[in-house]
Computed example of a mutant assay.
Amino acid sequence: MTVTKRALIVGASRGIGLGLVERLLEREWQVTATSRRSRAGELATLAERSAGRLQLETVDIDDPDSVAALHERLTGAGFDLLFVNAGTTHDRWETVADIATSTFQRVMLTNALSPVRFVEQFHDLVPDTGTIGVMSSGQGSVTNNTRVTGWEIYRASKSALNQLMRSFAARHPDDPRTLLLMAPGWVRTELGGPDATGTVEDSSRGVVDVIEARSGAGGLHYLDYRGQTVPW
């Protein structure tokens, strides 16, 4: 008898998040997917076609009260996969010299602090055999930051996300679960822009391939959507 796997995908209303939900449903997972708005567009349509395998929830990961309310609604649920995809960006060529403080704070809050706070609050719903992942970026690599490509604050926020997840792993040295920092590639989404070279379908399929391949492996891994290690 095949056991149905369960996933909680946070930030799934569009782009790669929506693609992750589609790929998991194709592989017979039971999925709970969140968006900031109730019954968000394509996600709602996907739920209607899912024969009950897709449950929709709303949460704003930057709002602690919203996160706490979602945790209360899901208390008692168990997820083989918790994956936080939510994120934001800024104007590509803004640097520390000219970015508004409010924009810096928004990007750091949404891309670094809020995802790991979410993991802190929800990891109790993931069993010892499960996987906890966050959507990082190849641009979070300090080692690879050797040329001017823009998105300096975005880069910093993803590096901070990686560091915070490494701290989480250090505080749980005996945790058998797999922890993943995923770099999805440069993808044509609202965040990635029209010049990006990758598609949502290829990226999301690769990310899910990696998630499934690393299931049960344990440890913290910084990987791209092809399964290759990204240098810190």
Rank of each mutant, 00 (worst) to 15 (best):
S66N: 02
I61H: 14
L43Y: 10
T45I: 06
L56T: 02
D62L: 10
D65Q: 13
V67M: 09
V67N: 00
T32L: 08
A47T: 01
R39Q: 13
A68M: 01
S50I: 15
R36N: 07
R37K: 15
E42D: 15
R49K: 13
L46Q: 03
S66R: 05
V59Q: 09
A44P: 00
G52H: 10
R27W: 14
D63I: 02
L25M: 03
W29R: 05
V31C: 03
V31G: 05
R27T: 08
L46P: 05
R27M: 13
V31D: 07
L43E: 06
R37E: 15
S35D: 04
V59G: 11
T58E: 13
T45N: 13
T34A: 01
D60Y: 08
R49W: 04
A40Y: 12
G52I: 07
Q30F: 10
D63V: 01
V59L: 10
I61C: 14
E57Y: 01
A68I: 01
W29V: 02
L54G: 04
Q55Y: 05
E26V: 13
A33F: 06
L54A: 09
A51S: 15
T45C: 04
T45Y: 05
T34N: 03
T32E: 02
D63L: 01
S38M: 12
L25S: 04
L46Y: 02
Q30C: 06
V31M: 07
E28M: 08
R53I: 02
R53E: 03
S38C: 06
S50M: 15
A33G: 08
G41M: 04
S38Q: 14
R39Y: 03
D65I: 09
R27E: 11
V67D: 06
R53Y: 02
S50W: 13
D62T: 15
R49Y: 05
E42G: 06
Q55D: 14
L56S: 03
V31L: 06
E57T: 07
D60E: 14
R36M: 11
R37G: 11
T45V: 10
D63W: 04
V67P: 02
S50Y: 11
L54E: 09
V67L: 08
S35Y: 01
I61S: 14
V31F: 07
D62K: 05
Q55M: 10
R36I: 06
R27D: 05
W29D: 11
V59K: 12
S38W: 08
R36C: 12
E48G: 00
D62W: 03
V31S: 01
A40I: 09
T45P: 00
T58R: 00
T45W: 01
R53T: 07
L43P: 09
D60F: 09
S50P: 09
W29Y: 12
L54K: 10
S38I: 01
E42Q: 15
D62F: 04
R53W: 01
A44S: 03
I61M: 14
L54S: 07
L25T: 04
E42L: 08
T32R: 15
L56M: 06
D63C: 01
R39P: 00
T45G: 08
D65L: 13
D60K: 06
